[in-house]
Structures are given as structure tokens and as C-alpha cells.
Design a protein around this nucleic acid. Structure first.
Lengths: 98, 98
DNA sequence: GTTAAACATGAAGTTATGTTCATATATTTA
DNA sequence: TAAATATATGAACATAACTTCATGTTTAAC
């Protein structure tokens, strides 16, 4: 095991970005849907526009999502599909934690 | 995908606990070693005793580690081996993020 | 029963994160 | 070009996380 030191900071960085209920759901949704507009996400997440937008730009900034404009809408999608594998781990993990 | 709502909070919770360079290294070390005392961890991590201890009790509190005393030493070990699978994901993930 | 070793704990300070609110920008439509 | 829709942005605040430092507790050795 022992992640290489270089990879370590990056791993923590990515995990930190993912480690939030709303952002986890965003990843889940974008894994199911290929791409979604901000308002579609707002609705599905039941999360206010501004807050959703903040989360999205944060995730984009950190390289997890990409965005492209189409008319009035901006569509977000997963940039690194592999991120999803972390979710799968968590899903399968019967972690009786907490 | 779409983690069940109940699992979601827990997943974020676990990820938040893991999402720290030192704590990632602790998990890596305890995956390699089965159990380690605090001072062994301090040394391997090159991390001050108090800080290491804080991280350890945090991880224990959140159910990731277990501890048992043996004389003057306290040995920590992974409570949920599955946590390691998340590290494996990250390792294999050529995430060109950031 | 003192001392030392190994570890835990708690307060304090600093920084980072999350959230809200008000406002700005871009695009389309009337 | 004015209004409406979709989204972004930034300031301000509240809360949580990280770290340090000083001190407490437990166990063992003398």
C-alpha cells in the first residue's frame, strides 16, 4: 500500500473535495446522467441555486467536473469517471462505522 | 449509482475523516503493519506525538481504528479493512486532477 | 513512592469550509 | 433595447478543522 508521497497530497485533496453529502450526490447524478444543467441539478438535489453553483465551481476548479455552455444553460459532467469508483467502494463497503 | 440517502451522510463522514494526508498515511501504514503503537506511528509519520494522537483518537472516534493497550504502549489497528479499498481506488486512479 | 516513558486531553489560536444573501453577467426572447 | 431566464460571483458570517502548547493519566522501572 503506502501511497507515494506525491500522490498522497493529491489523494487527500480529491477526497476532501468529494467528502460532502451534496457533492457526493452531484457525482452520483452525473454518473447516472452524463450531463446536467445547473437548474436540473438544483432540482434533483433540492439545493438552492447559489449553493449548488458554488459546489459546482468548486468541483470544477479542482478538476472533477467540466462544464460547457449551451444557450442559457451550462451543462456539467464528470471529468474523471474514475471518481465514481470511490463511490462504488463506499457503496459496497458495509462500513459499520460511526 | 445514487447512493441511498442514509448511506450518503455516512459516506461523506467517512471520506472527511480520511481526507487528510497524515490520516491517509496512517491508514496506509496500518494496512501494511496490522498494528502499530503511537510512537511507532509518530516516527514513521514524522509527526509530533500530540498531533498524531489527536488524529488517532479522531479516527478511532469515527470508527475507523481500534486501539488496545499493552503495557505502556497503545496499539492501533484498522477496524474496517475495507477502508483500504478506497486507497486502492485512489492509487489506481490516474486522476489528472488539480 | 519517585521518576520516566508513552500516550491522551483540553484550551487557544489560526485557517479553511459551508452557507446565505445580494448582485453581477450572459443569453435569449419579446 | 428591455425584460426574463440561467448561472456566477463576492462579501459576510458561522462553524468546523488543524495545529500547537501545556498539562494530565497510566503504566512500568527503579
Amino acid at each position: 500500500m503506502e501511497l507515494a508521497a506525491e500522490k498522497l497530497e493529491k489523494a487527500a485533496f480529491i477526497l476532501k473535495t468529494i467528502a460532502h453529502p451534496v457533492r457526493l450526490r452531484i457525482i452520483g447524478l452525473l454518473n447516472d446522467h452524463e450531463q446536467l444543467s445547473v437548474s436540473e441539478l438544483c432540482e434533483k438535489l433540492d439545493c438552492e441555486q447559489s449553493l449548488t453553483s458554488h459546489h459546482l465551481s468548486n468541483m470544477k476548479l479542482k478538476g472533477l467536473l467540466s462544464a460547457r455552455r449551451e444557450g442559457k444553460n451550462i451543462y456539467y459532467s464528470l471529468k474523471e469517471k474514475q471518481v465514481t469508483s470511490i463511490l462504488t467502494c463506499l457503496e459496497n463497503c458495509n462500513c459499520n462505522m460511526g
